[in-house]
């Protein structure tokens, strides 16, 4: 009796979860994920500051050329550009294995095996990092470069299962440091 009731409770929980997820319509989902990628405490302008730098030049073509070289140095394949609008788009594949995550999943597998059951370990294996950059003239004497990195992560079952806009300021700082060096110009915060 105890086994049946426990099974029914678990079954009801699974069904409730599935029913709830079926209630999210595509329009609802689009509205939810279509907003700016900021969470509690973050602001659009703060994110813009992390992702942008001002250069004291109106020569946007020079910045586009330097940025293209920088991205290629970083291993990105350039997939789309517009010199007129200062747009560069690229992507690169990268290993996404994080040892802690794998260790935790393996531990769960072992634990379930000891209990006489089965657990399929799931962890990140690879990622595609996308970069989109736009350069615009700003004011009389300078240009602003805004770059966005995001990543799509595939798991060990070969499925895309996570994606996120990268918001770590250090990653953007490293990119702009390389761009500064490549363009022989100083990058200033906006």
């Amino acid at each position: 009796m105890l086994n049946i009731s426990r099974f029914l409770v678990r079954g009801a929980a699974v069904c409730a979860f599935l029913a709830l997820s079926a209630c999210v319509t595509p329009n609802d989902h689009a509205l939810k994920i279509g907003g700016p990628p900021v969470e509690d405490g973050e602001t659009v302008s703060a994110l813009r500051q992390i992702q942008s730098r001002r250069f004291d030049t109106l020569d946007t073509e020079r910045l586009v050329k330097a940025a293209t070289a920088t991205m290629q140095d970083l291993g990105f394949n350039i997939s789309a550009t517009s010199t007129d609008y200062g747009v560069i788009v690229g992507e690169k594949d990268r290993d996404a294995i994080e040892n802690d995550q794998v260790a935790a999943q393996v531990a769960l597998m072992v634990m379930f095996a000891l209990m006489g059951s089965n657990y399929q370990a799931v962890y990140d294996v690879s990622q595609v990092i996308n970069v989109s950059m736009v350069v615009n003239k700003s004011g009389e004497t300078s240009s602003v470069v805004r770059v966005i990195f995001d990543r799509h992560i595939t798991n060990n079952h070969g499925h895309l299962w996570k994606s996120e806009v990268i918001k770590d300021p250090d990653i953007y700082q490293q990119f702009f440091a390389k761009l500064e060096a490549g363009a022989f110009l100083e990058a200033n915060e906006i």
Partner: peptide, 26 residues
């Protein structure tokens, strides 16, 4: 599109078209 977190995927100014993708879902 950048403010909203889209990765630009195609840019064709001659055709007046620009596309972006967000989180591989939108």
């Amino acid at each position: 599109m950048q403010d909203l977190g889209y990765a630009i995927t195609t840019v064709e100014p001659e055709a007046g078209v620009v596309s972006g993708n967000k989180l591989a879902l939108l």
